[in-house]
Amino acid sequence: MPEIKVEGLSHVYSPGTPFEKVAIDGIDLETEHGELVGIIGHTGSGKSTFIQHLNALLQPSSGRILYNGEDINATKASRRNIKYKIGLVFQYPEYQLFEETVFADIAFGPKNMKLGEEEIRERVYEAASFVGIDRDYFDKSPLELSGGQKRRVAIAGVIAMRPDVLVLDEPTAGLDPEGCRQILSNICEYRKETGSTVFLVSHSMDTVAEIAERIIVFNNGNISFNAKPEEVFAHAKELEDMGLSVPAPTLIAESLKAKGLPIDGPVYTHEKLLNEILKAKGANKDA
């Protein structure tokens, strides 16, 4: 049984007014536990609206979402409980920090779950270590931290609820390359240790290409592609028409191939590109 099953999901904003807008138009989707799914799409393609349905923040205009076979919008209690099962990290999550200390802010989620004090403490420590926040910071005000640190504290606030599925909306937006790399490796690490499903939403192909196992491309409220990265990136022309680009390594590999270098198979990560170039260089030397 798929962990998450989306059936004919549609969402219309402000129905019946001059501002009516169809954000999602009847999408179907299935994901298994433990997958790392990348969601990409142009601004306004419906990807952010879609992920807010996953934890019942938005209710579908039509269609439904099943989590382990049960409709998440069935009752008020199920709508509430799904938020602890499917953790959603919003875009620029650092703007939601509000407590006086870093510790208290990370503990906000677990506290709402009505856990015991010991359990809360344990979860906060665990979540903070996942995102690389030292205990020295626990008593500081979140406002004193740097942008990247704030972001990681905010992510820890969701991880502390130990969700089975972690959904991140543009987790690297507005960070410097080092901050980006750190957050992505934190996310990979977290997934490896807990085995949870991760949804990574981004408009940057390079970010998604680095770590996703499956890529879902949103366009105008519909799903255009839902496949492995190499299959998706093979459609460079269609992606460009949607205002998306293929990852930089793919572009470099393509132009190298055009120049006659022997480059194998699909290339979409920096690592693979490096290997291919080294291989090509070695082959050159032998000749």
């Binding site: 938020k83 999550p93 939601q96």
Partner: peptide
């Protein structure tokens, strides 16, 4: 709206 959604996602009621 955005902040409320974010806090709701962390179980705020």
């Amino acid at each position: 709206d955005k902040i409320m959604s974010a806090q709701k996602a962390r179980g705020a009621d």
